[in-house]
């Protein structure tokens, strides 16, 4: 026997979470206009890091949109993510200029060293690798973005070194602060 969820199961969650307040404020600021869905999703993802079911349901109910509509829009655009982000993220530009300058070699070595392909998260959930087409710094190709920092003229080796450094720093920090 299947349990059918009732409409009320999808009622907005109690907004004790300040991040949810932020989303609520955004929806209100856009006057509950359905056209503002992408703007609201941007704000929601910025606040939570990713979009989960509760959040999407909340947005749908607030903006009076069908649930599927919200999911359909969010999944169409590659920027929106339904999974929590890994601790560290390495974005490798695979735009034309970076392709010409050997971005694939960086991706290959990343896969060899950490076992992660673009779009995947490492087994320990600490590192994710994404490919992305062109933040527009082609003069400095190949381009990397590690944890939000834009880096130019990288080599496969320098990339690996940087990431190892990052992961090692965490370990040290943890050891210092028990």
């Amino acid at each position: 026997m299947l349990v059918t969820k009732q409409q009320s199961d999808y009622a907005p969650p109690a907004t004790e979470d300040p991040r949810m307040d932020e989303v609520a404020r955004a929806v209100k600021r856009f006057g509950y206009q359905q056209d503002a869905l992408i703007e609201v999703l941007h704000i929601a993802q910025r606040a939570f890091g990713y979009l989960d079911e509760t959040l999407l349901t909340y947005i749908a109910r607030q903006m009076k949109l069908p649930l599927g509509w919200v999911y359909g829009v969010a999944s169409f655009y590659h920027f929106f993510s339904f999974e929590p982000p890994a601790e560290h993220n390495c974005v490798v530009c695979t735009g034309t200029a970076c392709y010409v300058e050997g971005a694939q070699k960086i991706l290959d070595l990343l896969e060899k060293e950490f076992g992660v392909k673009p779009g995947q998260v490492s087994a320990d959930g600490r590192l994710s690798v994404t490919d992305f087409r062109c933040p527009g710094s082609c003069g400095q190709a190949p381009i990397l973005v590690i944890d939000g920092e834009l880096l130019g003229r990288e080599t496969p080796e320098s990339t690996i070194a940087r990431i190892k450094q990052l992961l090692a720093n965490d370990k040290q920090a943890k050891e210092v602060a028990p």
Binding site: V3, E53, P66, L67, W69, G72, S75, F76
Partner: peptide, 28 residues
Amino acid sequence: AHTWELKGRGIHSMVITDLNGPWGESPS
């Protein structure tokens, strides 16, 4: 009812019901 939607894009598009959940549990 607007139960059905498309998710993803291109060759990875799929039809879904509501928030990509099982059809049998669709609230709409």
